[in-house]
Amino acid sequence: MLRYTVKRLIQGVVTVWFIATATFFAMHAVPGDPLTSDKAVSPEIRANLEARYGLDRPLVEQYWIYLTNMASGDFGISFTQQNREVNDIIAEHFKVSATLGILAIVFAAFGGILWGAVTALYRNRAPDIVIVFLVILGISVPSFVFAAFGQLSVVKLNDWLGFTLVPVAGWGTVQHMIVPSLVLGLGTMAFLTRLMRSSMLEIVNADFVRTARAKGLPATRIFRKHQLRNAILPVITVLGPSIAAITTGGFVVELVFAIPGLGRYFVQAVQQLDYTVIMGTTVLYGAFLVFMVIAVDIVYGLVDPRVRLD
């Protein structure tokens, strides 16, 4: 297990290096000098930046500076916000995005496993039909529509109650987090429910479940120890990619609900061509996703004994 973990972590570091390299060369392939954008900076800052990033040096040397800076955790200075460190910006906004994303994935995972198990147990009966219908809806409706209608229902709910039960937008308190994370998790939850359902249906008639019945175990124990535990395995394997989906969905939810997250900031940075922020954010997001996937794989190893020997 330890060897496996170390191996995966090394793979992760190499992958992040690749992402950083791809980002660097993508940004340097942009036509023109990044500093000659409309957001003309004062000559002093410009000189400062040129010195700091070695923009007058050869590309390879710039790449080296960029890599060493990034390895020491320095993402540089914002191009558009004077004297603001990208690290500060990321630290401030990433916290928000991560909180939102983790709440959403937890909600999606638990919801998906629960509803998937329910549909499989009530196969072809009313609860199954209703949930399957909702699931099909859930995977077909784009996240921004969920976000828009989520917000609309909050408005209507508050109107109807006569007071603000949950805020319509913004960030800060627990109340602010509920609706955006629900909305964000909804699509993924639908997807996981579907997966869990088919996985459960396969397991319901598995040989080892028949063995468990032949042992005379109570139905609840068979469900808990034999069906659920095995049916969850495929759900765990897709949790990694799901985190990526949730992260991108987060962009929309942050926009619609006016949440000061990194996604919203990234879109803004792109519009303003704030190169250092764009590079820093891309690499950070990439690293986050890579290591989340690794974390999920390690958790999978804990649940499924068969992986541990690899």
Binding site: A206, D207, F208, R210, T211, A212, A214, K225, H226, R229, N230, L233, V303, D304, P305, R306
Partner: peptide, 12 residues
């Protein structure tokens, strides 16, 4: 049962 490979719970 016939097939002992699949008749035991792989995660226990």
């Amino acid at each position: 049962f016939q097939d002992p490979m699949t008749s035991l719970n792989p995660t226990m």
